[in-house]
């Protein structure tokens, strides 16, 4: 699905991403862990062609993301508020994203019904623009808009950080279903080690831009990660 060839990115002499070779297969759920500044978000931005790589390339379905726009058809992402349009109501934003992905209004409405629990009554018909929602609720909007796109690749940056506990559990359940039922390829970065090992089938541990550990999740993984992050 995704091949990373010798990609590198540095800011002012500091290496932020430095990955020689990485192969991601269809249906894998990738968990990215690492301390602040390890390069997780930068790697996602490279995947989405939002920053220019100093060297190397990322291929999505054998096509370079920096030269082709095709990956946009089957990739959905939510990194931060920069993906939301603050002056729209949540509904308008969903219709907007739906429209860009060829989903009609009734279609979107139908989809949103399945999110009743996830939204917990504080998103739809709230009479607010997205910019007036709380951080957590903004995040819910972003995640829902991603799932609405019905894509093959899903990228979420620290999705658990701003959510309340019940929503975190619901999100975990949804991600698992997406992987099992639709064979979606999912990227999740997180500081919550137990969540990320719970959801992901493969864990990438990053440090100073490099992937220092790449392994399939087993029952030992959580313990090993805790060992690594121990102070």
């Amino acid at each position: 699905m995704i091949t990373v060839n010798n990609i590198g990115k540095a800011y002012g002499g500091v290496i932020v991403v430095d990955i020689t070779q990485l192969q991601i297969n269809v249906g894998e759920t990738i968990g990215l862990v690492g301390n602040n500044g390890a390069g997780k978000t930068t790697f996602f931005r490279l995947l989405l062609d939002l920053i220019k790589a100093d060297r190397g390339e990322i291929l999505s379905k054998e096509k370079n993301v920096a030269t082709s726009e095709e990956w946009k058809n089957y990739t959905a992402a939510y990194l931060d508020e920069g993906f939301l349009i603050g002056y729209l109501t949540p509904e308008e934003y969903f219709y907007f994203t739906g429209k860009l992905n060829n989903r009609s209004k009734p279609d979107v409405d139908e989809f949103l019904k399945t999110f009743d629990l996830f939204f917990d009554g504080s998103i739809l018909n709230s009479g607010k623009y997205i910019r007036d929602l709380s951080k957590g609720n903004q995040f819910k909007v972003g995640i829902a808009a991603c799932l609405l796109q019905d894509t093959e690749i899903l990228i979420l940056d620290e999705p658990f950080a701003n959510l309340d506990p019940s929503t975190q559990m619901r999100l975990i359940k949804m991600l698992k279903e997406l992987q099992e039922q639709r064979r979606m390829t999912i990227f999740v970065s997180s500081h919550d080690l137990s969540h990320v090992t719970d959801v992901c089938s493969r864990i990438l541990l990053m440090e100073k831009g490099k992937i220092i550990k790449d392994q399939t999740t087993t029952e030992e993984t959580l313990k090993e990660l805790e060992q690594y992050f121990k102070v």
Binding site: K72, A77, N101
Partner: peptide, 14 residues
């Protein structure tokens, strides 16, 4: 500019 990231990563041709 506040949501340009989203527009550029969205399913949308420049």
């Amino acid at each position: 500019s506040s949501h340009f990231d989203g527009l550029m990563a969205g399913n949308l041709h420049v």
